Simulated scan of single mutants.
Amino acid sequence: MHTLSKLGKLTKWLAIGLIILAIVIAISAKIKHYQRFKDNNEYRGADIVNNSQFLDNYQKIYPSPDFKNWETSKNWQGWSPAQSMWYYNATQGSDLLPYDFFLSLEQSNSQSLFRDNQHIDQFRYIPQQKTKLNPDALPLGMVKDEYQNKSYLGFTCAACHTSQIVYQDTAIRIDGGPAMANMDGFMRELEVALSMTLNSAEKQQRFVERVLALDINYDNKTAIVKDLAFYQLQISLYNYINTSDTHTDTLG
């Protein structure tokens, strides 16, 4: 009987322990769910564009609170703003480049940053403003990823599967639609920018100073220059392997 009593108490405490564990798991899942959809930007992060080289400037965003039918359109395509923002910024392990490299890199032919919205517009990636899930105002579909204690810049599915059509002065966002982005051009120009930074003493010095100031991945110049050479070669090899014999600039 004494053994049965001990067994009964053990079973009781085990049941209580399982209940507590279930509650903790449920609370944790709720917190993760909240964190995932915490960015409820009503404009879906869209930034106003006034100087697009494609002449599709816009002053309004649809859907947004600026439209009278906002209450019925805010779940545009069945997606709430928070769901769209999660889709744009959900990292998927595409570690293209150290994060501070992308933030610090200059364009190949000027001192303007590679990530400048006017430059990004040349490749038809969509400019975004700063939001909770995108504090550095990265273009739509580009995201910060953490891997083995290092921060990287990578693409998400949204980079290639989000459309934006401009009608008159209104940009209409289409989540899941085909992007008009020129990824090949982006990658080729990224290679050139990295090469110029690697081989120009002035560009390299400015680049190193910016990277060190960010204090994200690096604390010395030697490591920065070493990885600059590594990623320049990696991007160069990617472009070489994926080079097409079709010259798109000659297509009418």
Score class of each variant (00 low, 15 high):
residue 25 I to R: 09
residue 10 L to T: 11
residue 241 I to F: 08
residue 121 D to A: 14
residue 59 Q to V: 06
residue 188 R to Q: 15
residue 124 R to T: 05
residue 223 A to K: 15
residue 246 T to L: 15
residue 204 Q to I: 01
residue 181 A to L: 14
residue 187 M to V: 12
residue 33 H to C: 04
residue 1 M to L: 09
residue 203 K to H: 13
residue 110 S to E: 07
residue 46 A to F: 08
residue 3 T to G: 06
residue 79 W to G: 01
residue 85 M to D: 02
residue 223 A to C: 06
residue 252 G to N: 14
residue 146 E to S: 08
residue 130 K to H: 06
residue 44 R to T: 05
residue 214 L to V: 03
residue 218 Y to R: 04
residue 59 Q to P: 00
residue 224 I to N: 05
residue 85 M to Y: 01
residue 2 H to A: 12
residue 218 Y to F: 12
residue 184 D to E: 15
residue 133 L to R: 09
residue 168 Q to V: 13
residue 161 H to Q: 10
residue 12 K to Q: 13
residue 128 Q to L: 15
residue 106 E to G: 01
residue 186 F to S: 10
residue 249 D to A: 08
residue 33 H to T: 13
residue 194 L to T: 01
residue 205 Q to R: 12
residue 237 L to Y: 15
residue 136 D to Y: 04
residue 204 Q to T: 03
residue 133 L to A: 09
residue 54 F to N: 09
residue 92 Q to N: 07
residue 104 S to K: 02
residue 190 L to N: 08
residue 100 D to K: 01
residue 60 K to P: 01
residue 161 H to A: 04
residue 81 P to M: 02
residue 167 Y to I: 12
residue 42 E to N: 08
residue 117 N to S: 14
residue 49 V to I: 07
residue 229 A to Y: 10
residue 150 K to G: 04
residue 80 S to H: 02
residue 70 W to P: 00
residue 183 M to T: 14
residue 68 K to H: 15
residue 244 S to C: 06
residue 22 A to V: 07
residue 176 G to K: 01
